[in-house]
C-alpha cells in the first residue's frame, strides 16, 4: 500500500511536470508578444522593452519554465500579470466553488445512475426507457442543458436562482449556498450520469448473468435484496469508484462551461479569464491545481478500490 502510494506520487510529479511544461510552452508560443498586448497600442518601444525585462520574456522558454517551477517549489505561484493579485489568493477564492460544484455534480450523477440502474435491472421497459433517456441526455451539450434548466426553473418558474454561488459565510449561509448550487450541480451531473449508468448497469448485468457467486447466493436461499446488497453491489462499488475518479478529469471541461453559465467564480472561470487576458501565472496556477487534484483523486480512487476489493489489494500489493 505504502509502496503504491509512493509509486503514484512519483508518477504524479512526472505528470504535473509534463503537463505544466507543455502548457507553459504552448501559452508562450501561441500567444504572440504579451507585452504588446498588455500595454496596448500606445505603448512606447521602451515600455514594451521594460515589460519584457520585467516578465523575462526574452529568456528562453525552458529557463522561464524552471524559474517558474523553482518559485512554485518554494510555494510561490506568483502574481497576476494584469492585476498583480497573488495567484494563491485567486486559487483560494476559486477552489471552494469548483469543489462544491464537483461534489454536487457527483452526488447528482451518482444518484441518477443508481436510481436509473435499479430501474433498468428491474424491468425490461424501464431498462429501455432509462437507456433511451440516458442516450438523449448524453447527446445534449452541457451548455444547452444548463440554459434549459435556467429557462425552466429560473425564468419561468422562479424556483431556483440562476447565479450559482453564494459564499456560505455570507448572510444567506449554507441554505442559500446549497439552493444556488442545485441547478449547476444538476447541469453538470446530468452530463456524467449516462456514462455512470452505462458502466454500472452493464457491470451489474454482467454479475447477475455470469457471476457464479450470484448464483451461489441464490442457491443459498437468500432474499433478492440481500443478494443485491451483499453480493452484487459491493463488487460494483470498486470499479464504480475508480470510474468516478477518472471522470473527475473529464468533468473539468464541463465545469468550465457550467461555471460560465451560472457565473460561478470557480477555477474554470478563473482560467478562462486568464486565457482571455493572457495572464500566464494565473493560467499555470489553475492548471497546476487541476492536474494535482486529478492525480490525487485518481490515487484516492485507487486506494478506495483497493480497500473494497481484496482481489485488487492482493495483486497490487504483491506487484
Amino acid at each position: 500500500m505504502l509502496r503504491l502510494i509512493l509509486e503514484r506520487l512519483v508518477q504524479m510529479v512526472i505528470v504535473v511536470f509534463v503537463v505544466t511544461l507543455a502548457a507553459f510552452t504552448l501559452v508562450n508560443l501561441l500567444s504572440g508578444d504579451i507585452a504588446v498586448y498588455l500595454l496596448g497600442d500606445h505603448a512606447t518601444p521602451e515600455a514594451v522593452a521594460a515589460l519584457h525585462a520585467q516578465l523575462h520574456l526574452d529568456d528562453p522558454i525552458i529557463i522561464r519554465y524552471f524559474d517558474w517551477l523553482g518559485d512554485v517549489l518554494q510555494g510561490n505561484l506568483g502574481t497576476s500579470v494584469v492585476s498583480h493579485y497573488p495567484v494563491v489568493k485567486s486559487l483560494t477564492n476559486a477552489i471552494p466553488p469548483t469543489f462544491e460544484l464537483m461534489i454536487g455534480a457527483q452526488i447528482v450523477g451518482i444518484t441518477l445512475a443508481v436510481v436509473t440502474t435499479a430501474a433498468a435491472i428491474k424491468w425490461r421497459w424501464t431498462d429501455r426507457l432509462v437507456t433511451g433517456v440516458a442516450l438523449l441526455v448524453n447527446s445534449i451539450p452541457t451548455f444547452v442543458v444548463a440554459l434549459i434548466l435556467i429557462i425552466i426553473f429560473s425564468t419561468t418558474l422562479h424556483l431556483l436562482p440562476s447565479i450559482g454561488w453564494v459564499a456560505p459565510t455570507s448572510a444567506g449561509g449554507w441554505g442559500k449556498n446549497i439552493v444556488a448550487m442545485i441547478m449547476p450541480s444538476v447541469a453538470l451531473g446530468l452530463g456524467i450520469f449516462p456514462e455512470y449508468m452505462r458502466i454500472l448497469r452493464s457491470d451489474i448485468r454482467e454479475q447477475l448473468d455470469r457471476e457464479e457467486y450470484v448464483t451461489l447466493a441464490w442457491m443459498k436461499g437468500l432474499r433478492p435484496t440481500r443478494i443485491f446488497g451483499k453480493h452484487v453491489a459491493p463488487n460494483s462499488v470498486g470499479g464504480f469508484i475508480s470510474m468516478i475518479a477518472t471522470t473527475t478529469a473529464l468533468l473539468i471541461s464541463g465545469v468550465v462551461i457550467v461555471e460560465q453559465v451560472f457565473a460561478i467564480p470557480g477555477i474554470g472561470k478563473m482560467m478562462l479569464a486568464a486565457i482571455d487576458s493572457h495572464d500566464t501565472p494565473v493560467l499555470l496556477g489553475g492548471l497546476l491545481t487541476i492536474v494535482t487534484f486529478v492525480v490525487i483523486i485518481n490515487l484516492v480512487g485507487e486506494l478506495i478500490y483497493m480497500r473494497i476489493d481484496p482481489r485488487v489489494r492482493a495483486t497490487r500489493v504483491t506487484a
Partner: peptide
C-alpha cells in the same frame, strides 16, 4: 461450479 475462483464473492 466449475471455477471455484468465480463461485465465491470476492468481497
Amino acid at each position: 461450479f466449475q471455477d471455484p475462483g468465480r463461485s465465491l464473492n470476492p468481497t
